[in-house]
Amino acid sequence: MIIAVIIGMALVTMIPRFIPAFIVDKINFPSWINRWLNAIPYAALGALIFPGVLSVKQDQPLIGLAGGLVAIALAFFGFNIILVVVGAIATVFLLTF
């Protein structure tokens, strides 16, 4: 029974993932759609960061916010992304310890 649920979940996840591979082979988009699609990564990053980052620690949005702000600062000063990640983890760890 659980296996059937897993296969169902897999299908509804995989189909939307691969359909675009066929779409771009068939259709040439006008310039405005290309600009839209090129902006999608930045929009997706925004939507993935906020408000999700506030829920890192349940009921304490400020902790996630602090981790996020440290990440912004480290990234702004050009630190390697691994250090950005480690810095944010350390911040949250120290605040919840």
Binding site: V53, A71, I81, V85, A88, I89
Partner: peptide, 17 residues
């Protein structure tokens, strides 16, 4: 729980540059 911030930090680290 602290490591739960990792993926958000990665998204931020990708966006800022």
């Amino acid at each position: 729980q602290s490591m739960g911030v990792a993926l958000y930090a990665m998204f931020i680290g990708l966006l800022i540059p």
